[in-house]
């Protein structure tokens, strides 16, 4: 979503007096400032996490910095040792195949074929949870698991943040 707003404002030179940020960078900033206290203690049986770098957020949006924030938050929330990095990653990551209207366009066979590389990449990490901070990636990666037999669940970030929150 971020890209459509950011790029829209720029391309059509729409006057506005606000700046656009991703909530992921805010999560990271709040955790670093201590305003959002989280602890991975809940993750007793070592649930393994990995991440998807949404194209519109990372490569076409805010680039490696937001990808680093994303990883920082995940590690704070679910424990550094439970995080598995993917390759390629950050601004060079694969597209999941769900974006650009593919989910809505209805060419399901092509969409899943597009997502095969993403499936193999995530499957190789053996992770239990794939953090997908983009609604299209969320739907697509969930569908890829179902279609190709992946064992992970695709989730947003906020569920785990709340689980790890220390009040």
């Amino acid at each position: 979503m971020l890209f459509s707003t950011l790029e829209g404002l720029k391309r059509f030179k729409i006057p506005h007096n606000f700046n656009v940020v991703s909530i992921i960078s805010l999560y990271a900033q709040w955790i670093r400032e201590g305003r959002l206290k989280v602890s991975p203690a809940w993750n007793t049986e070592g649930l393994k996490f990995t991440v998807q770098d949404p194209c519109k957020l990372v490569r076409q949006g805010l680039g490696d910095p937001v990808a680093d924030d994303l990883r920082f938050v995940i590690k704070q929330v679910c424990g550094e040792e439970n995080f598995v990095e993917v390759w390629p990653n950050k601004s060079n990551n694969y597209c999941c195949g769900g974006g650009g209207g593919a989910l809505q366009a209805g060419f399901t066979e092509n969409r899943r074929k597009h997502g095969l590389m993403k499936f193999e990449q995530l499957h190789a990490t053996g992770a239990d949870v794939v953090i997908t901070p983009c609604h299209n990636c969320h739907t697509q990666i969930k569908d890829l698991a179902a279609h190709y037999g992946g064992k992970w669940q695709a989730t947003h970030l906020w569920n785990w943040i709340v689980k790890a929150m220390v009040r």
């Binding site: 059509f12 729409i14 007096n17 909530i23």
Partner: peptide, 21 residues
């Protein structure tokens, strides 16, 4: 659509637009 969104946020006068992704 983008212009409508921008107008809404300016109308509310919020300096920062958080995208939930």
């Amino acid at each position: 659509v983008t212009r409508k969104q921008a107008e809404t946020v300016d109308a509310l006068g919020c300096p920062t637009y958080i995208n939930t992704e």
